[in-house]
Nucleic acid binder design. Structure first.
Lengths: 191, 191, 191, 191
DNA sequence: TATGAATGAGTATTCATTCAT
DNA sequence: CATGAATGAATACTCATTCAT
């Protein structure tokens, strides 16, 4: 199975899978994904040899999309808290603006079908939001373990924020702000 | 007059479903659930008319189990923080001791197959861990919304803690403590 | 399986089966029949060892009911045509008044589950409507065969009449009269 | 570009369904129909999305076959009665020659699974046998209702004739002739 | 390379019948 | 004798995957 020609079709399939899984769950048929992508049933398997491979690719694709939206906060002229808040806002906004992507990512994350590295990468990405903080070491945990833990907590709070904000679109800004406040308190070492 | 319906079989099915779903996902077949429970395929449907009804019942069953394990911390002679920590520890311990239950609850929670009331109840239950805190009102949110948000954050941090502790059983106590610390900071209003 | 006690339950089951089959077809479950009859699932099988035996009994039961309604036209003081018309009217009226019985009889008649004798009896019964006519012998057929043929034709016309009359309740009398006219012409030998 | 959908398989399925239903009734399994047709179980559902759709298609298929066999009696040089008799004979002959088709049509006709238009078409087709007769109006019925009634009677007599002739193959010609005689008397207005 | 027809194992669910109570 | 819980084979239908065109 040589890498097939059309980049377009590959993207269309990943996008279609995101939408279909968001509404129908992981049990969504490959046929329905192919249909929404505008390709034939068999064509899907030229790009992704099995359904599980497709699902893993969807996760990677969504992580990449999310990463692209987060942007880089290399501007060091503003405070670390402010830079963090900008990334936080980007993250929440992305989640709200792409509910299908958000839902599908969650489904995949708990599906047990992803390689550990994929989940790690997702965690890391979220962690980046607060990564410039001087690393905190938690009692009883190595530095790496502490960071992993903090990343995970941050991710969890962010997802919670997205979920509630999506459910109450009128209060997006309030949730965004509240989430940031809670997150900041959670990951900031005691003074 | 006929054989009475067996409470045992109902429990066996709920338990079996928990185990099977934890390893095979929500797509686990009703046949495999019945088999592990030691009953005939058709018997499952005498107790749960459809698979979806079974799934919802599994969630309720797990919530009830969790609730029973949390216990009541009515002993008012100790500080509120200490009482909260006891419940927190119980919650984390339960999650670690029952990984199948934990995994299945998570799968169900994101499945979209549960009634809103069920999810609410789960959130409330977790929120109870910190419920004795004087309620905090978050800027821009009503009191109820603030509480809902805090409950959700608490749940998210707890789940994160369970996940990491389960993955690194040697560090259970460290994660438990770290999780509590982070959670406490997160839900405590700024002084 | 000794003949069970309750005549009532037997009748209730036959009646229930008639109603249920009329609406759900021969695939209607024994459970639903038992339920409508107000008895337990297993009880049905004390009265009718198998579903097929029940179905056959339903047919016999309906034939008996029909027979009872037709009455006897032993009053020889009126003309044969008039006596025939009275029976015809009774037959059509019964079909219209008992649509479930009529529908179920038809379903059973084409089901292939009845013994030939049962179908014969049904035909004979219908044939009785015109039985007092001097038997006509049709060219190429024995007397018995001629009678059988005439009975069948009569039955067919009667059923047709019932079907159309039921579909257009306003025109019951017109159909009844038209049906009789056609039937009479059909079975009357050429003068 | 892919394998074209096979007209053969569609026909094979319709034919197979006709045979299987004739012997096993409408409860015949889709698996058995597919097997006799020589295709996989799943293939059946590519051609007919549900069993009910298949059943309806079988009816249409049989009506078409019957129609083709009836032929046209446009030869106006012979008397109307003679032309009618030719069609009558064709109809009866078809029924006798295709007992499975005949049985299946009857089962379907009383199954309640057909659209009214389908039953209408069948009736019309049979009615065509006698259609050239000047339309008779029956007392109390509109012209359309009279025609419908006559069509139904004609169909009923024809089916009766087929049934008896099939049961007694030696007497086919006698029944055919007798049936025509009765039918002709039935539908001819009184002089 | 793209297509979609074909496949057959797998799914949830039903049901006639049995039998412990 | 009546009950209804238990059974497991059977059913309509789905779907990931293959392969002829």
């Amino acid at each position: 199975m040589a890498r097939p020609r059309s980049e377009d079709k590959q993207q269309a399939l990943l996008h279609s899978a995101t939408e279909v899984i968001a509404t129908q769950g992981l049990g969504a048929s490959t046929a329905s994904i192919a249909k929404l992508a505008g390709v034939a049933e068999g064509t899907l398997f030229r790009y992704f040899a099995t359904k599980d491979i497709l699902l893993a690719a969807v996760f990677d694709y969504l992580i990449d999309e999310l990463e692209a939206c987060l942007g880089r906060n290399s501007d060091s002229s503003v405070s670390i808290k402010h830079r963090t808040q900008i990334m936080w806002d980007n993250y929440i906004d992305w989640g709200i603006a792409n509910p299908a992507a958000y839902a599908t990512m969650n489904q995949l994350a708990v599906s047990g079908k992803l390689a550990p590295e994929q989940l790690d990468k997702a965690m890391k990405l979220c962690g980046e939001v607060g990564v410039k903080l001087e690393a905190v070491s938690i009692e009883g945990l190595s530095l790496a373990q502490s960071t992993e833990f903090m990343d995970a907590v941050l991710t969890a709070i962010a997802n919670t924020t997205v979920a509630l904000a999506t459910a109450n679109p009128d209060l997006i800004n309030a949730y965004k702000k509240a989430g940031f406040g809670v997150m900041w308190k959670a990951i900031t070492p005691d003074s």
